[in-house]
């Protein structure tokens, strides 16, 4: 059994069917990148895995627990799955330290000292120790996104979901965030990543899935998807990416 299993996941917003039957598995320590045009369903898929959006049909199993079963404790599930958003979503009224310790203290019930020790270790690991007492407003986009990653990691999740985490960043800040993700991958973190950074997907993913209109049209190792995609839609999409100079 794979660590993450999705079977026939459907999701509609009103009459707009965003996910039209997603089947996907992610093995432990695997890094899977979701690529595809805006509106193809990448973000919705990630939000469904974290139960931020309830699914209309289908099954989602993470680490042997079926999240879509009735009566599942969603708060317990979410503690084991970290998610990082495109727009950082840091809490503007809290310092970096409080942003990072909020989850461990309130959701895991850690003492303040334990939570702060855990936060300090993570902040040091990602070069953010000097920003410990700063407020999100005073940080660059790249620093904010790294804090958001640290905030998710502070719960020691078994799975990380990254939702286009570099799309809102100035180009020169993208690298510092992607390096953090590469480090996580090297450390064996299981990750499901929606991204427009094709270069990153090519060099860091174990597998790349191409989403089109709410379905996974094609998936495989990055070398194959990027060099010899079989589906015409994938070829079209990648051709446009190359044209835009982003691959």
């Amino acid at each position: 059994m794979s660590f993450v299993e999705l079977e026939g996941v459907h999701k509609s917003f009103g009459r707009n069917e965003v996910l039209r039957g997603i089947d996907l598995t992610v093995e432990e320590h695997e890094v899977v990148c979701l690529i595809g045009a805006s509106g193809s369903g990448k973000s919705t898929l990630l939000r469904c895995v974290n139960l931020l959006e309830p699914v209309d049909a289908g099954r989602i199993v993470v680490g042997g627990t079926e999240l879509t079963a009735p009566g599942v404790d969603v708060n317990r599930v979410r503690r084991e799955i970290g998610i990082v958003f495109q727009s950082y979503n840091l809490f503007p009224h809290m310092s970096v330290l409080r942003n990072v310790t909020l989850g461990p203290r309130k959701a895991l019930g850690l003492s303040r000292a334990e939570a702060e020790q855990r936060a300090d270790e993570l902040l040091a690991r990602f070069g953010l120790s000097d920003k410990r007492d700063a407020y999100p407003d005073s940080l660059s986009g790249g620093q904010q996104q790294r804090v958001a990653i640290v905030r998710a990691l502070a719960l020691r999740p078994k799975l990380m979901l990254l939702d286009e985490i570099t799309s809102a960043l100035d180009p020169e800040l993208v690298a510092e965030v992607l390096n953090v993700v590469r480090e996580l991958a090297a450390g064996g973190m299981t990750m499901l990543i929606a991204t427009h950074e094709m270069g990153f997907a090519r060099d860091s993913a174990n597998r790349v899935c191409f989403l089109d209109a709410g379905r996974i049209l094609e998936q495989g190792p990055p070398e194959r998807i990027f060099s010899s995609p079989t589906e015409p839609r994938t070829q079209q999409f990648l051709a446009r990416i190359v044209e835009a100079g982003r691959l």
Binding site: F85, N89, F91, L102, G103
Partner: peptide
């Protein structure tokens, strides 16, 4: 998205309200 971020950390709805939404709202 602020509430979504709080819930994604495993906070309950009440905790999200208490620690994330209300402090910003009242200010």
């Amino acid at each position: 998205s602020q509430e979504a971020a709080a819930r994604s950390l495993g906070l309950t709805q009440l905790q999200a309200l208490r620690h994330v939404v209300l402090p910003q709202a009242i200010r």
